[in-house]
């Protein structure tokens, strides 16, 4: 059995897509007196994958992203080894 590797899948709304959550948080930050040019809200899914090799764990995470974790119509994703 291999060891467990941690991999993060970062999912963001597509740049051209309306991001109402980001817009709402942006508005709240401005009301608190912060100067922010833009704000977008996405999500991170952290996976623990039983693999020795980081590249294999990343490949599995990519497959999971494509099968379930992201919707290409509205989102983009990136995978990172942690």
């Amino acid at each position: 059995m291999g060891e467990t590797l941690k991999v993060a899948v970062k999912i963001m709304p597509r740049p051209e897509a309306l991001d109402p959550q980001g817009r709402a948080v942006h508005g709240a930050l401005k009301k608190l007196g912060f100067t922010v040019d833009d704000c977008r809200v996405g999500k991170i899914v952290i996976l623990e994958i039983n693999e020795d090799v980081a590249a294999s764990a990343i490949l599995k995470a990519q497959q999971m992203a494509e099968k379930l974790l992201y919707n290409p119509l509205i989102e983009t994703f990136e995978v990172y080894a942690l």
Binding site: L18, L73, I74
Partner: peptide
């Protein structure tokens, strides 16, 4: 839509 049986996606109302 998520099942791919219809095209497109449903997202947050513009009113939020």
């Amino acid at each position: 839509c998520e099942a791919g049986l219809l095209p497109g996606a449903l997202t947050k109302n513009s009113s939020l």
